[in-house]
Amino acid sequence: MPISWTRKDLLGLEELSKEELELILTTAESFKEISTREIKKVPALRGRTVVNLFYEPSTRTRISFEVAAKRLSADMITIAVETSSVRKGETLVDTGRNIQALKADIVVLRHNSSGAAQLLARHLDISVVNAGDGWHEHPTQALLDIFTLKEKIGKIQGLNVAIVGDIAHSRVARSNIWGLTKLGAKVIVCAPRMLIPPGIEQTGVSVTHDIDEALYNADAVNVLRMQFERDEGAAFPTHIEYFQNFGITKERIAKLKKKILVMHPGPLNRGIEISSEVADGLNSVILEQVTNGIAVRMAVLFLVSQGHDKKYENTDKKRPGR
C-alpha cells in the first residue's frame, strides 16, 4: 500500500519504516530516467533553494547532491567550511539559522560529528538531509547501494549481503545495516576484531572475522574504504597485512560458487581493501552506484520538500537548549 512522505528531514535509516524506504526507492526509480534524457531536467523543485553545507572534504557526495538538485531545477549553493564564517567560530546551529534566514528550503549537511544532523534538524524549520555525520549514518549512500542491488538482482528480501571493512568507524556500514535488514536482507559484517564495534550483532547482523566465510554465500559485498590515518591503524603495521587478510581479490571472487556483486562507496584504495582487477572487473557495480546516487538523491530532495511534520515539537521537553 502506498504511503505518503511526512518527514521534513532525512537524518538516518534507523528511524525509517520499511514502507518509507520502499517509497524512496520507487521514487528514485521514476527519477532515474531523467538522467538519460538529452535535456536532463524536470521542474519538480523549481524555485527551491538547496544548500550543501559541508564540514568535511567530500567530492562525490557533494557533487552528487549538486547534480541531483540541478536536475530537479532547484537553485544550489555549496558552502565549504574553509570559505565560510565557520572558521571564525560560528556554531553549527547559528550557521544553519543563517541559511534558514536566507530562505533556503533544504540543507544538506556533511559533518564530522555524529548527531550533527539531528542537532541541526531540531533547531531549523527547513529540511535537513544528512550527507554523513561522523561514524553515525550516511543514509543516501546506503539508499543508493540498496537501489543498485535491487536494480541488479530484482529484490532485497532474502538477499545475503556482506559488508567488509572498518565497521566500527563507518557510517556507510550503519546505514546499510538498518536499510538492508528492514527490507529483509541478511547482513554479515566482516572485519578484524578491533574494527567490530561492541553489540553490533544486536542490530540484527551476523559477524565474522573470516573474509572467505563472509563472501561464501553472499549475493553482494559492500567493500568499505580503509582509513589507516585513524589511531586504530597503528595496529596494522602495513597495508599489505590488511589486503592479504581482508582484501577483495580476483582469487577470492573466483572461488565462489555464485556470482557476487561488488560495491564500494568510494573513493577506492586500490590494493588495500580491493584489487584493481576486482574494482574494474565484471562483478563491480561501483560506477553504477555513482549514477544511481543521482536518482536516489533526487528522490530524497523531492520527498523531504513535501514533508512538513514537526516531529520534534512534541519531544521538546526531552531536549536541551532552544
Binding site: E14, S114, G115, D133, G134, W135, H136, E137, A168, R171, R174, P197, P198, G199, I200, Q202, T203
Partner: peptide, 11 residues
C-alpha cells in the same frame, strides 16, 4: 558508555 548504544550512535 561503550556498548550497543555507542555503536548505534557512532560515538
Amino acid at each position: 558508555n561503550l556498548g550497543v548504544v555507542s555503536t548505534r550512535l557512532g560515538l
